[in-house]
């Protein structure tokens, strides 16, 4: 059943369905601590329940300019390879079960989205990109390598 659970959010100006398996929670952040000289998609560090999380700006991963972090902004907290990350989200819409099957992506995407999106899914009359949150974190590292 968990496989069917998605978090619907607007990330980098695009509505996406995030696979929920890796998602820890959705929280709000204050002002993050900057990490000088870090890769551009690292928006900073913040502490949550005594853990330090690395804040990721998906805009940069997609190839868009970075957006400043607004206090009180909501982030999607994910665990990838035993490290805690948080994805900046423009808007969190819903967590819901989607019975429809994931389908192959039809049509041409921007290169940034083509790298992170795994599939498409039909939800309440619109198509959403299905994204594994880990793609936002690991991909730039691969790109840099």
């Amino acid at each position: 059943m968990m496989d069917k659970l998605y978090l619907i959010a607007r990330i980098a100006d695009t509505r996406v369905a995030l696979r929920s398996r890796a998602i820890n929670s959705v929280v709000t952040v204050g002002t993050p601590v900057e990490v000088p000289a870090a890769p551009p998609h690292v928006a900073g560090l913040f502490a949550l329940r005594s853990r330090v999380f690395t804040l990721i700006d998906p805009h940069v991963v997609i190839g868009l300019p970075a957006v400043p972090v607004a206090p009180g902004q909501r982030v999607v907290v994910v665990d990838v390879a035993e490290h805690g990350y948080a994805l900046l989200a423009d808007e969190i819409e819903d967590v819901c079960f989607i019975d429809a099957a994931e389908t192959r992506i039809a049509g041409k995407l921007l290169p940034g989205w083509a790298r992170v999106a795994d599939a498409m899914i039909e939800h309440r009359g619109s198509s959403l990109l299905v994204v594994d949150p880990a793609n936002f974190i690991t991909l730039p590292a691969l790109k840099a390598a």
């Binding site: 690395t54 490290h83 974190i137």
Partner: peptide, 12 residues
């Protein structure tokens, strides 16, 4: 605690 890999990768 160790930082995220991409931060450690800066070497700083």
């Amino acid at each position: 605690k160790p930082a995220a890999p991409m931060i450690m990768a800066t070497g700083l």
